[in-house]
Amino acid sequence: MSGHERRAHGHAEQGRIDAEGVFIRLGQGAEAFEAVQDVSFTVPAGEFVCVLGPSGCGKSTLLGALAGHIAPAHGALTLDGAAISGPHPDRGIVFQHHTLFPWKNVRDNIAFGPKMRGIPKAERHRQADEILELIGLGGFAGRYPKQLSGGMQQRVEIARVLVNHPRLLLMDEPFGALDALTRMMMQELLLDIWTRLRTTIVFITHDIDEALFLADRVLVMSPRPGRIVEDITVPFERPRRAEIVAEPPFGRLKRHCLDLLRPRPGTDTLPRLSPLGAPPHAR
């Protein structure tokens, strides 16, 4: 057992989320609107939760609030009882498109968090190499992000968050930009990592198959204003094989989700807005 796993097991009781009557407003002045409306839920430590919803339903905004990048207008959002205020390495976030630093090689990208905490070079490189083994990229420490495939870039992105031993792993459609085969491989890899680390995961997706394959629980959100319309417990036992998506119980649950997501007549698709409010560079 590696040092990383030992440490994660020692903290197995950490990572509980409580959301109580959360409202999030985005935009300013006349354009302001409620992106998330009266959302309440609880995630026990170590659970894998998917938030499923159509584009623009506020699911990314909710994730942004959990990360501490935006503050709710009303309501309480806590991790292990402590209010979430501002970003923290305890709550790592992975986006759809990688945010690796092109001027750093893979090892130094992963060692970014430890470096910010002032951990000496030899030690942070050791930690980075340990995580690289965990995600199966042991031989790529010296490569630069542009030399990697999309799937590998997302693996490094995940590793860069895991090196901080987060209590909560937030993922915003992390595999949305990958091709179908790579995505399936990444889903299995993520489940494998999660089985070993047992950190709480909140995973945003609009892909029903992905949500049902990965999650213990699926929170289904309605289009704007975003509310949770159903809290589904996924009954499939673990470890899950990729084949379960073709079996009847999976199909039944999928049809149920489809019904929930299908737009009601008369509700037009709303224009796409930046999930965190202000468009980039407008600050």
């Binding site: 990360a67 990048h69 390495p89 790592g92 976030i93 945010t99 970014f112 860069r160 980039p280």
Partner: peptide, 17 residues
């Protein structure tokens, strides 16, 4: 201005001041 917003958010969440 060319630095993507998500990259800044990611760095903040990794513990950068």
């Amino acid at each position: 201005a060319s630095c993507p917003e998500d990259k800044i958010r990611a760095a903040r969440s990794l513990g950068a001041s």
